[in-house]
Simulated scan of single mutants.
Amino acid sequence: MSPAPTNTASAPQPSALPPSSDTSNLPHRENTVSDATSAPKVKPARKPLLRLELRDLSDDGTRAFLRLLHASTALETAIDANGVAYTTGRDIDEDHKEIHLSTDYINHVPESRQKEEIQGVIVHEMVHCWQHNALGTAPGGLIEGIADWVRLKAGFAPPHWKRTADGDWDAGYERTGFFLEWLEAAHGVDVVRKINEGLRGCKYDPDRLWHTCCGKSVENLWDGYKSSLGDGDSKQSPAEST
């Protein structure tokens, strides 16, 4: 499956409709509105072109995908390889992306959770198609953490996720995702969007990024997060506690 075109360097921008070059055949209409309200309409931001490829229709994981999800809906609101999934650029150019989801992985997820897990993985990987990465210099754990933060916010956190503060802040995935969730509460609901924007079109500068977004160093913020958990104790994710 390859959503295209997308742009990891900058967010898609709306463009104004081109003015008509010939109005001689149009009926005359009195100008009863102001210039401000009669300005050309603006097209909405473009959506990615999504394509789905299923390599083995006989695979049990493929059957589960097709049984549980309507492909066009699942991909729009947010496929074989080893591991869980990954996103990669295509040889055409960097605006074309492919998401590879292991159907073998799907087959080994408990059936009662397969739909939610597929949706969660797709949400995570779709984030990689759109997010900024400081021209490839951002910590990989931050990139993965932002994707899992979006998955967490979308309500697809799997039951084994736990809030832990052992190790480093940029360990990635749900560990960094829960750290970003805590930053929301401490520094405003738009803090992750500010972080993403701070990774746009420039190399990663930790002092500039974190002080601009949160007013502190990331090490200081991580210490605050650890304190909030109580000496690094683990806490269950919302999915596990229900």
Score class of each variant (00 low, 15 high):
residue 1 M to T: 08
residue 1 M to E: 11
residue 2 S to E: 09
residue 3 P to H: 03
residue 5 P to V: 07
residue 7 N to K: 13
residue 9 A to I: 11
residue 12 P to T: 13
residue 13 Q to G: 03
residue 17 L to G: 05
residue 18 P to D: 12
residue 18 P to H: 07
residue 29 R to A: 14
residue 31 N to H: 07
residue 32 T to H: 01
residue 32 T to I: 10
residue 34 S to W: 03
residue 35 D to R: 00
residue 37 T to R: 13
residue 40 P to F: 09
residue 44 P to L: 13
residue 44 P to I: 12
residue 46 R to W: 00
residue 47 K to C: 10
residue 53 E to F: 10
residue 54 L to V: 10
residue 56 D to K: 12
residue 56 D to P: 03
residue 58 S to R: 15
residue 60 D to W: 08
residue 62 T to N: 07
residue 62 T to Y: 05
residue 64 A to M: 05
residue 65 F to R: 02
residue 66 L to I: 15
residue 69 L to V: 13
residue 70 H to F: 15
residue 71 A to R: 14
residue 72 S to C: 14
residue 76 E to S: 11
residue 80 D to V: 07
residue 83 G to F: 04
residue 84 V to D: 02
residue 85 A to I: 00
residue 85 A to S: 08
residue 86 Y to A: 00
residue 87 T to M: 14
residue 87 T to R: 10
residue 88 T to F: 07
residue 89 G to D: 10
residue 92 I to C: 14
residue 94 E to S: 11
residue 95 D to S: 13
residue 95 D to R: 09
residue 98 E to F: 05
residue 98 E to H: 04
residue 98 E to N: 03
residue 101 L to Y: 00
residue 102 S to N: 09
residue 104 D to L: 08
residue 105 Y to W: 15
residue 107 N to R: 15
residue 107 N to T: 07
residue 112 S to F: 07
residue 113 R to N: 08
residue 113 R to A: 13
residue 117 E to M: 10
residue 119 Q to T: 06
residue 121 V to H: 01
residue 122 I to N: 01
residue 127 V to M: 08
residue 129 C to L: 05
residue 133 N to T: 14
residue 135 L to C: 06
residue 136 G to C: 06
residue 140 G to K: 04
residue 140 G to Y: 04
residue 141 G to P: 04
residue 142 L to E: 01
residue 145 G to Q: 03
residue 147 A to Y: 04
residue 148 D to L: 06
residue 150 V to M: 11
residue 152 L to Q: 07
residue 154 A to G: 08
residue 155 G to Q: 05
residue 156 F to A: 01
residue 157 A to P: 00
residue 158 P to W: 03
residue 160 H to C: 04
residue 163 R to I: 10
residue 166 D to T: 09
residue 166 D to S: 09
residue 167 G to E: 05
residue 170 D to R: 01
residue 170 D to V: 04
residue 171 A to G: 14
residue 172 G to V: 05
residue 174 E to W: 09
residue 175 R to G: 04
residue 175 R to Y: 00
residue 177 G to Y: 03
residue 179 F to V: 15
residue 179 F to D: 04
residue 180 L to D: 06
residue 182 W to C: 03
residue 183 L to Q: 00
residue 183 L to T: 00
residue 187 H to Q: 06
residue 188 G to F: 07
residue 189 V to A: 11
residue 190 D to A: 12
residue 193 R to L: 06
residue 194 K to H: 03
residue 194 K to S: 09
residue 197 E to L: 14
residue 205 D to F: 06
residue 206 P to N: 06
residue 207 D to K: 13
residue 207 D to G: 06
residue 209 L to Y: 13
residue 210 W to M: 12
residue 210 W to T: 10
residue 212 T to G: 10
residue 213 C to G: 06
residue 214 C to D: 07
residue 215 G to S: 11
residue 215 G to V: 13
residue 216 K to W: 00
residue 217 S to Y: 03
residue 220 N to H: 10
residue 225 Y to M: 05
residue 226 K to R: 15
residue 229 L to N: 10
residue 229 L to S: 07
residue 230 G to W: 02
residue 231 D to Y: 05
residue 233 D to L: 14
residue 234 S to Y: 12
residue 236 Q to E: 15
residue 239 A to T: 14
residue 240 E to F: 02
residue 242 T to G: 13
residue 242 T to L: 11
